[in-house]
Amino acid sequence: MMLISCPWCGPREEAEFHYGGQAHVSYPEDPSALSDEEWARFLFYRDNPKGPFAERWNHSASCRRWFNVIRDTVTYEILAVYPVGTPKPVIA
């Protein structure tokens, strides 16, 4: 069970959080302008890297805020926590 630092509540047990998959996937500005292929990419295709991954978590059992995390999908180490809407930090 990971210890996840909610930006609003501090470090809490993983069980308090809800996972939200890849971060920085925006709902398209104008879905009707997309081809079927482009729309399918938005609907179904997400990055799945082995290593650092920018992903979303929601502190669902507490403040209910979404935030972004960069986590290594091999070691499960959390490398950064940052607010929604801010750019992905560069991990050395």
């Binding site: 069970m1 990971m2 082995k50 992903e55 986590r71 999908t73 091999v74 070691t75």
Partner: peptide, 13 residues
């Protein structure tokens, strides 16, 4: 486990 992971291990809860 809910999260993406290549670690061949999960969480104890």
């Amino acid at each position: 486990d809910s999260y993406n992971g290549y670690g061949q291990r999960g969480s104890f809860h």
